[in-house]
């Protein structure tokens, strides 16, 4: 049980996927303009992550021991079909959200956080439960980073920022400061 809590907290804070591993930067920089949208995208991504972790475990245990070189291709196909499925269900259930997420919904497929999650879980040899907790932690960490970023961006929207800095450069510098703040969590485990 301790081990599971450790995995969750460490992927949520210390090894945050966005701010420490640089995974999932495209939506992090692209969709984080509004708090509401980024929270929902975070949730959708978390869901895809959990499903992917499950599928990756099944593939690893039953298929890929016979053909390890197919790992990458099979992972990406699983992710692409999961995203397609989610896209269809969101379109049906919540057209407003579908519209606000726009192009970034299909782009969850090429969100490196998800493929990265599957690869990390495989490399570290997590079992099913550990893999699922890892996926939950990673998803929560991604959502946390998105929401923090969106909050800061909404606050700075009306501030007097030189026109030259506005845009990606400004967001990257904010992300750098956020990432520095998250580095403070690194002491969380070594101390105890």
């Amino acid at each position: 049980m301790d081990n599971l809590i450790w995995i969750f907290i460490s992927t949520l804070l210390v090894n945050n996927f966005v701010l420490a591993y640089f995974l999932g930067l495209c939506p992090f920089l692209g969709v984080s303009g509004q708090l509401e949208t980024s929270f929902r995208l975070g949730m959708a991504t978390t869901f895809v992550m959990v499903v992917t972790a499950l599928c990756a475990w099944i593939l690893n245990t039953y298929v890929l021991i016979y053909a390890p070189y197919l790992r990458l291709i099979s992972f990406i196909v699983v992710i692409a079909s999961t995203v397609q499925f989610i896209e269809m269900s969101i379109k049906k259930l919540s057209p407003g959200l579908f519209k606000s997420l726009g192009i970034f919904l299909p782009l969850i497929t090429t969100n490196c956080a998800i493929l990265g999650l599957a690869i990390f879980a495989t490399n570290r040899g997590y079992n099913l439960i550990e893999g699922l907790v890892f996926a939950l932690g990673a998803g929560a960490g991604f959502t946390l980073a998105m929401v923090l970023m969106a909050g800061i961006r909404e606050e700075t929207e009306l501030m007097n920022v030189p026109a030259l800095i506005r845009g990606t450069a400004f967001n990257l510098i904010i992300a750098g400061i956020l990432s520095m703040a998250f580095m403070g969590f690194a002491g969380l485990f070594s101390a105890s």
Binding site: L19, A20, Y21, F22, L164, I165, G167, T168, A169, F170, N171, L172, I173, A175, G176, I177, S179, M180, M183
Partner: peptide
């Protein structure tokens, strides 16, 4: 040291983009 750690990546890229814009 911070430059080879994650925050350095964000900051350097931000500043490079700024230079490119300029």
């Amino acid at each position: 040291v911070i430059m080879v750690l994650p925050p350095g990546g964000f900051l350097t890229l931000g500043l490079l983009l700024l230079f490119f814009n300029w």
